[in-house]
């Protein structure tokens, strides 16, 4: 998969929460580490996503915020 996005993280679909227009997809990267994605319903249907499916979380590096304590 050749993509300009620098972060392509393999994950498993954990939960799906469907709205009228948007769908929230919670994915598990490793046990206890989750990542949440909001995509449109149209995109969701296109990808045939279901709980347990393997997918990738794709995040462009300029969209990753950094926090320190």
């Amino acid at each position: 998969m050749k993509l300009s996005a620098r972060n392509t993280i393999a994950a498993k679909v954990l939960r799906i929460n469907e709205g009228a227009v948007n769908v929230e997809v919670v994915m598990e990267i490793s046990p206890g580490v989750e990542i949440v994605s909001i995509i449109t319903k149209h995109a969701f249907e296109n990808l045939n996503l279901e709980v347990g499916a393997q997918a990738y979380a794709v995040i462009k590096s300029s969209n990753v915020m950094i926090a320190t304590e």
């Binding site: 050749k2 300009s4 996005a5 995109a43 296109n46």
Partner: peptide, 17 residues
């Protein structure tokens, strides 16, 4: 311009609208 990604092939499905 920083909100877009590029890819060369169509062999995979992406959620981008």
């Amino acid at each position: 311009s920083s909100q877009m990604i590029l890819h060369a092939n169509e062999t995979f499905k992406l959620s981008a609208d």
